[in-house]
């Protein structure tokens, strides 16, 4: 599917998603340095992983095509 704005807009969106993925990965690593209960650490780690996966699946893999039928 071609989105409005053309290729430049699509590529620009790619950079934003990539930046978000890098920030989340660094945040994930930063969690190691913070002293917190193990349970909270694991929940935060899982939340970051799910956010990463959602960003990739939604923006890069266009999973919404499945129900939008584009």
């Amino acid at each position: 599917m071609r989105r409005p704005g053309g290729l430049a807009a699509d590529w620009g969106r790619g950079w934003w998603v990539f930046a978000a993925l890098v920030v989340l990965t660094v945040f994930e690593l930063g969690l190691l340095l913070i002293d917190m209960p193990a349970g909270l650490f694991r929940v935060l780690l899982l939340a970051v992983n799910l956010a990463d996966a959602w960003l990739i699946a939604y923006y890069f893999m266009h999973i919404a095509q499945l129900w939008r039928g584009e």
């Binding site: 290729l7 590529w11 790619g14 990539f18 923006y59 890069f60």
Partner: peptide, 29 residues
């Protein structure tokens, strides 16, 4: 840990370039 982070960033970057390739194909570039 440094190697783990490094290859993670490499793979994330490859996802960006793969996305760009796919969008280029869709737009005929």
């Amino acid at each position: 840990q440094l190697l783990g982070l490094g290859i993670t960033l490499v793979l994330l970057t490859s996802s960006l370039t793969a996305y760009r390739a796919e969008r280029a194909a869709v737009h005929g570039h």
